[in-house]
């Protein structure tokens, strides 16, 4: 846990006078799991959008493995090794589950018109590998997404399975850094506990570094090495979960919500 994989320096973005993020400094070390918390509208998703290239920051710099990501298109960011999920699950609803994961390997594969037209050995090999990798990634979630489900459209999946499929899709791009936007939102306690386990395994078995936005403090506590709290586009506190959750400013921002929630569950 030494090398910095992601380093964010003085990042700001304004939307027509509104500061969505202000002077954010933040870093992620190789192999870390960082939880990002903060009340609604704190700028968490904007933060993800900016890392993944969907929003261009007004000022500041984002370094990934030492190289700046500013000005890159989202697909180039993904190519570099950052992949993400979306808060409001955005699957390719009419593509099959296998295809959803296969299409995510696009930037790691290279067969073009020629290969597909003449069905070259290289093309067949690549297709086979894409398929195998897809099944391997889906197999990570147990039996839920494989078998007969492979050929079903993603739209028939349950909410929890859609979230799982979205994570699988992000995994399939073979990233080094995985951005998870509220991975357990809408799941019941049993499912979110299970997913929390899987997030741990994503690091230990797949070697991903993970940044995760999450409202569920149980998940954040159980899995994060470090927690960052954002509010009004600024960093309120950084540190271990205990430190951050006991920070008076954070408690104020949340109006004591984390404690309540812990009691409730």
């Amino acid at each position: 846990m030494s090398e910095r994989i992601l380093d964010i320096k003085n990042l700001s973005v304004t939307f027509g006078g509104l500061h969505a993020l202000r002077d954010l400094n933040f870093h992620v070390d190789e192999g870390e799991i960082v939880g990002v918390i903060g009340p609604n509208g704190a700028g968490k998703t904007t933060f993800f959008n900016m890392i993944s290239g969907m929003v261009t920051p007004t000022s500041g710099d984002i370094l990934f493995e030492g190289e700046s990501l500013i000005g890159l298109d989202p697909n180039q960011v993904t190519q570099r090794g950052i992949s993400r999920t979306f808060q409001n699950v955005r699957l390719f609803a009419n593509m099959t589950i296998a295809e959803n994961v296969m299409v995510a390997q696009h930037c790691r594969t290279k067969q073009g018109v020629w290969g597909s037209l003449f069905n070259t050995p290289a093309f067949r090999k690549e297709e086979r590998e894409i398929r195998e990798h897809a099944e391997k990634v889906l197999g990570f979630f147990g039996t839920r997404l494989i078998g007969y489900r492979l050929e079903q459209p993603a739209s028939v999946l349950s909410y929890a399975n859609r979230r799982r499929l979205e994570i699988a899709r992000a995994m399939a791009t073979s990233p080094r850094l995985l951005l998870l936007d509220e991975p357990v939102a809408g799941m019941n306690p049993k499912e979110s506990a299970e997913l929390t386990d899987l997030i741990g395994k994503l690091r230990s078995e797949w070697g991903f570094t993970i940044v995760m936005i999450e409202h569920d403090m149980n998940v954040v506590r159980d899995v994060s090495d470090r927690v960052v709290c954002l509010d009004h586009g600024e960093t309120l506190a950084q540190g271990s979960f205990e430190e951050v959750s006991n920070d008076p400013e954070v408690i104020e921002a949340y109006l004591g919500r984390p404690l309540e929630k812990r009691d409730a569950s």
């Binding site: 993904t78 390719f92 593509m95 295809e99 299409v103 696009h106 930037c107």
Partner: peptide
């Protein structure tokens, strides 16, 4: 197909 379904997600998935 992915582009037809959701262009910005397709782009975020490396296409």
């Amino acid at each position: 197909m992915a582009i037809r379904e959701d262009e910005s997600v397709a782009e975020a998935m490396g296409i």
